[in-house]
Design a protein around this nucleic acid. Structure first.
Lengths: 340, 340
DNA sequence: CTGAAAGCGCTAACAG
DNA sequence: CTGTTAGCGCTTTCAG
């Protein structure tokens, strides 16, 4: 009963005579032998481990994606190394190096930094092992890197289309000060106006200092409250996430505005916040589960070497329509009070 | 320039003459050499990796804990393997085996299963490598396993004390059908009543089928709405999490009850939901960040072999007091409308 | 201070 | 079908 035989029993049981196989298994069970993956990986050049990089762990957006990824990886027999970059391109690089050092078989980066993209870092790394990058930057499409492109511009257009259909000509835009995801949405918002020869009025853009932490709620509340008092809020407002949308709803309600009769509000991300209050938010659903599933699928496909499938995917956000947006200037024709 | 020298430069630079050190570093940099952790781990018996097990990834409770853990691990030079058990004791075991196989230097299990505790599995595993178990089961205290005990009973008593001080004699208890965390809270709630010779009235306990998913909001809404209509809701209600607390608030508001004048509501977990609505929820803060920090601290201490520090920690939940609970039967003496 | 040599636990040829 | 052998890439004596 040599070590080689044990190895065979564990990896290719059918190469071993049933009788000896049983004997080996018995000993293995009795001694609770746990194979050393490090040694195995050294030999096979496979760690059965995937590195996943996100910006922040305590963020429901990333966690929903990560949950699906982890589930899919488990089904395929992989474990997940997870780390958060805090939006630092430097940390992103360092973690990718760590993944590489641990010989991760593949790497998924959610909201990959522009910086590491433009200087070719990802391209170089992706030559060494399968990579999947999740992002919403239309400018990025180069090379043979696995990509999941989240079409946020499309999401914004769906919002604008929907509100336009309800008769809202002007839509205020509520965003956090800094952040690519805010920028790309604002660009799409401005584009929409430009296409219709409507002036891209800066006074329609409301900014709060911190758009992502939970402070965003009171900050948005204050910003929207001020806009209402100063009479510079149109009939509808779009918020770049549900946090700020909630803040907007709170401010409007406190100011005595009814939603959606007096003000239409649309949020983004379709998180639990959208359905937590008495007024249910119409919100853009980024299809997080799809993003996770596609990321995992793409990576797993690359790992199994099947150069068959597509190397990239595109996710189309959808508008989850609820109660917070309604027809413009049609307050009287609406009936209040609801079903259940 | 042998491999041994390179190894020394990377691990004990001072053992090498500055001149050769530079030379090695130059080559390392030029070739972008990334050491193979698998090989290193095989030799050193250290993987610089920690396994973390939680019940569900898309759950803000676990993610807040995990976020801190990951940060602390990074600071100490460890990477994190993360997996979700879906509350299955079997999966829990399997993942712990996977961690073991990958030679994780230590393992943290958040909300460890009772099953694997009582049959001695954790005790046995913990002999092989440092373990930290996070749980709120007072019955568990055995052995030399690292433990972070979250005193949920204390949290409940603080709620009851607070409401009692506000004049609420009867507090309805809103919970999900199944779950240890619901059971332990209900036990503390019942205990409180028993101590005061108040009958443990079953009609004060409201149950919803699924207490943890986002369906909990409408389910709680319906349950509380029914209780209101049937006139069997006392002056205060405690919900086992903020999801259900939000549902309760929505139902009460729809029924025309003012909060907190007509009904006091207390939630649990102190999540973003507590501060998202116009009425800010008073909620039990389980101190997730402390739980994460203590877990990491305990594990790291065990790893550094300093048998000095305590092997366990106890977390005391606190009540985050906001606006959703107020004096009982004192509606008239309260002034409505607020500060900003 | 540096090189040579052994070996961590495993798998993959290669004989038998 | 099974044992022997070599070697994955590193660290660690042990000499020099």
């Amino acid at each position: 009963m040599s070590t080689a035989t044990v190895s065979r029993v564990l990896n290719n049981p059918n190469l071993v005579k049933p009788e000896t196989r049983e004997r080996v298994l018995a000993v293995v069970g009795r001694h609770e032998y746990v194979p050393n993956s490090l040694a195995r990986g050294l030999m096979t050049k496979q760690s059965k481990t995937i590195g996943v990089l996100i910006i922040s762990i305590s963020n429901s957006y990333y966690m929903e994606i990560t949950e699906i990824i982890q589930r899919r990886l488990r089904e395929a027999g992989f474990m997940m190394l997870l780390a958060a970059t805090d939006d630092s391109a430097d940390l992103e690089r360092r973690y990718i190096r760590e993944f590489a050092s641990r010989r991760a078989d593949g790497i998924i980066v959610i909201d990959a930094s522009d910086e590491n993209f433009s200087d070719g870092f990802f391209a170089k790394e992706s030559a060494k092992r399968p990579f999947v990058l999740v992002h919403s930057n239309p400018a990025i499409s180069a090379s043979g890197i696995g990509q999941v492109f989240v079409d946020q511009r499309l999401g914004m257009r769906r919002v604008m289309e929907y509100l336009e259909g309800l008769g809202h000509r002007d839509v205020a835009f509520l965003r956090g000060e800094k952040g690519f995801s805010f920028d790309i949405k604002e660009a799409a918002w401005a584009e929409w106006r430009a296409e219709r020869s409507r002036e891209v009025r800066p006074d329609l853009v409301l900014r709060v200092a911190d758009g992502n932490s939970e402070d965003a709620i009171p900050l948005a509340d204050a910003a929207v409250g001020a806009a209402i008092r100063e009479g510079r809020l149109p009939s509808a407002i779009f918020a770049c996430n549900d946090l700020m949308a909630r803040g907007a709803v709170n401010a409007a309600t406190r100011a005595g505005l009814r939603i959606p009769e007096d003000l239409s509000v649309v949020g983004h991300d379709n998180t639990i916040l959208a359905v937590s209050g008495r007024v249910q938010l119409t919100s853009v659903d980024l299809k997080m589960r799809d993003i996770g599933a596609e990321s995992a699928r793409l990576l797993l496909a690359a790992l199994s070497g099947s150069s068959a499938g597509r190397r990239s995917a595109r996710i189309e956000p959808e508008l989850a329509v609820r109660d917070s947006a309604g027809p413009a200037a049609a307050a009287d024709s609406r009936v209040r009070g609801g079903s259940a």
